[in-house]
Design a protein around this nucleic acid. Structure first.
Length: 461
RNA sequence: GGCCUGGUAGCCAAGCGGCAAGGCAGCGGUCUGCAAAACCGCGAUUCGGCGGUUCAAAUCCGCCCCAGGCCUCCA
């Protein structure tokens, strides 16, 4: 298995620290608002990674942080006059619901920043003791000049950072404008913790260092996020963590490209975003959203349009109906070639996903199998065993893709009765009545398809 | 200014030196009582542009054009 490692800028063979085990840290949401589908692109990518590692037999321990204290969450709870916890709980709940709609696997740990203040304090104390941090006016900053490899992840030339260009020069009084806050003094602020470091609250970056190392150890396998997290967030995590432990922090850094809308980055600050709920309210299927976000390679920019979502909806419908229809087929002629095609599809699926999660050709292999299977099914050259193999294969790859609808396979008695009546009408060549029944069922959301082997049905999507 | 992506058929998207995957949409056909689904056929003589290297370039090199991102809020 290979992954493109941001740290080295190369595709590398994936070697775990412990045989068969993977420690995976995926940067999670700041719970101050609904996440938009640009955010979900990253979470869908992380879900694919998580599921594929499991599919390939790794024991995965995955951590996703919940940032529930920062400028925006504090501003939000003050604005509404409620506690920080009450405010962030609301958006955490929405986030977890959206995760479920998109079939995102739940991480093993979802640590909240506010529940790890002691761990952060302890890490900051270590940095102070080692001279990597200093206190100024009650706040504590990381001293970048003490950490020579700063910039190695983002491949940034530090001298190229122009003070004042985008740095707020006089917000805090730092030794060096590039230094970043580990701890923000809040002598008067309403949201603050009384600690050995004084009254204050943590900087943004420190939570990920403290929580990842708590749950995954001082060095772990994979850390992911959107490319906009590379700098400064992940760069700072490396600095804090490696300065404190003297050990390498993360072996593989994986970052996904942005989702664009009308060829612009989708972001809260631009106001050009869709939330998942916006799309569901328009009638789109959450699994179509999942499929769309999944089907472009994670390191390529994805330009989101409703046209592409509609296309994904159609692809998904065909895919799901193929699977659903398998249960209607009964055949007797064993087809060895079809069995071989299934094995070939599995082989291609794995080969391509092993290559830095190259999903497009992996999906192409599956679509080619569907075509082969349809030919066999339409010409009756298959056995019950072939059908069983197909069902089993599609359920297998669905461990990774998670796009199959687990529909109720039973129909109401009334509908079964109508289908039977229509069959009789057709046999009697009473096509007017047959068509009336078909239309009535369609109104009830049941689509009928007549095949030589009998009438099959599916629920309209 | 520095760094980094992307530009392949109407749309989405693989391929990254040896005849241009796959999906969606469209058109024609087969099947069907009619449909639907499925299948068959059609669709890029060409991969943003111009040069270069090579027996061979969408793939490598150079320059240019377009779009987007990062350079201390950000998935």
């Amino acid at each position: 298995m290979k992954f493109f490692n941001t740290l080295t800028g190369k595709k590398e063979d994936f070697q775990t620290l412990q045989p068969g085990q993977v420690g995976l840290y995926t940067c999670g949401p700041t719970v101050y608002d609904l996440a938009h589908i640009g955010n979900f692109r990253a979470y869908v990518f992380e879900d694919l990674l998580h599921r594929y590692l499991l599919y390939r037999g790794y024991a995965v321990t995955r951590v996703m942080n919940i940032t529930d204290v920062d400028d925006k969450t504090i501003a939000g709870c003050l604005r509404e006059g409620i506690s920080l916890k009450e405010f962030t709980n609301r958006y955490l709940k929405f986030f977890l619901e959206d995760m479920e709609s998109l079939r995102l696997l739940k991480p093993d740990y979802l640590p909240r920043a506010t529940e790890h203040i002691p761990e952060m304090v302890s890490l900051i104390k270590t940095l102070l003791e080692k001279g990597f941090a200093y206190m100024k006016d009650g706040s504590i900053y990381f001293r970048i000049s003490k950490f020579p490899s700063y910039g190695k992840l983002a491949h940034l030339d530090l001298s190229a950072i122009k003070p004042g260009a985008r740095v707020e020069v006089d917000e805090y009084s730092k030794e060096d404008v590039r230094d970043f806050a580990l701890w923000k003094a809040e002598p008067e602020g309403q949201v603050a913790w009384e600690t050995e470091l004084g009254r204050g609250r943590p900087g943004w970056h420190i939570e990920c260092s403290a929580m990842s190392m708590k749950y995954l150890g001082e060095t772990f396998d994979i850390h992911t996020g959107g490319i906009d997290n590379i700098f400064p967030h992940h760069e700072n995590e490396i600095a804090q963590s490696e300065a404190a432990t003297g050990k390498p922090f993360v072996r593989y850094w994986l970052h996904c490209a942005h989702l664009l809308v009308n060829n612009e980055k989708m972001s809260k600050s631009k106001g050009n975003f869709y939330t998942l709920r916006d799309l569901l309210n328009k009638g789109y299927n959450p699994l179509a959203v999942r499929y769309l976000l999944l089907s472009t390679h994670y390191r390529d920019p994805l330009n989101f349009t409703e046209t592409s979502l509609a296309q994904a909806t159609n692809t998904l419908r065909h895919y799901q109906e193929f699977f659903h229809n398998l249960s209607f087929y009964q055949g007797k002629q064993d087809n060895q070639i079809l069995s071989q095609k299934i094995d070939q599809a599995r082989k291609a699926f794995i080969e391509h996903l092993d290559d830095d999660l190259n999903i497009s050709p992996a999906l192409a292999a599956i679509f080619e199998l569907i075509k082969e299977a349809n030919i066999a099914l339409n010409t009756a050259s298959f056995s019950a065993e072939n059908v069983r193999q197909l069902e089993s294969f599609f359920l297998e790859v669905d461990q990774v893709l998670a796009i199959l609808e687990r529909r109720k396979e039973t129909l109401e008695e009334e509908i079964v009765r109508l289908i039977r009546q229509r069959e009789e009408a057709r046999k009697a060549k009473n096509f007017k009545k047959a068509d009336e029944i078909r239309e009535e069922l369609l109104r009830q959301g049941i689509v009928l398809e007549d095949t030589p082997a009998g009438t099959r049905w599916h629920r309209r999507q």
